[in-house]
Write a protein that binds this DNA or RNA. Structure first.
Length: 145
DNA sequence: CATATGACGATGC
DNA sequence: CGCATCGCCATAT
């Protein structure tokens, strides 16, 4: 309800962006939000995925939207309940993504290796934009622990 | 309508 | 580097 046009655009944009994540790759909520032009709304990205319909009748659903490829910036798999994290981790392993498990039952993913950082979405290139101001991405050392 | 919460992220200390 | 806090806003009660 109350899905205003703006919210509708946001939901679709998030689902659409997530679909752009290549197989065997992952990205963060914040990055999705940033790509959509709303770097201050990483939570809304999660909200969209949280409300991602499981019904294949919907255009965007749990089956065609690789929500599992979206994790937090810390490279950890967020979970809203016990077991859900394992489900996402298992789904990622099926794509060849190495998931490390911690003694705390937390799941970590090497963002430096599987991180997906495109300058922009191929769909947004005609929506708006003037020029990417983040020329330096990846390349070289990012976080050498 | 108001209050509390959350699949996050950046900042301050 | 870890903890606390703010920002954001859709959902739930």
């Amino acid at each position: 309800m109350a899905r205003t046009d703006e919210a509708e655009w946001w939901f679709n944009a998030v689902y659409e962006a997530v679909q752009q994540i290549p197989h065997g790759k992952v990205t963060s909520y914040g990055h999705i939000a940033r790509l959509l032009g709303c770097p201050q709304r990483p939570r809304q990205v999660g909200i969209c995925l949280k409300h991602l319909p499981s019904s294949t009748e919907e255009f965007y659903n749990n089956d065609n939207v690789p929500w599992q490829r979206v994790i937090n910036s810390k490279g950890m798999i967020s979970h809203r309940g016990p077991g859900s994290a394992a489900r996402q981790a298992a789904a990622l392993e099926l794509e060849g993504i190495t998931v490390r498990s911690d003694a705390m039952n937390e799941f970590y993913i090497d963002m430096a290796q599987f991180g997906w950082f495109p300058d922009r979405l191929p769909n947004e290139e005609n929506e708006e934009e003037g020029g990417p101001e983040t020329p330096d991405v990846g390349d070289g050392d990012r976080d050498q622990g």
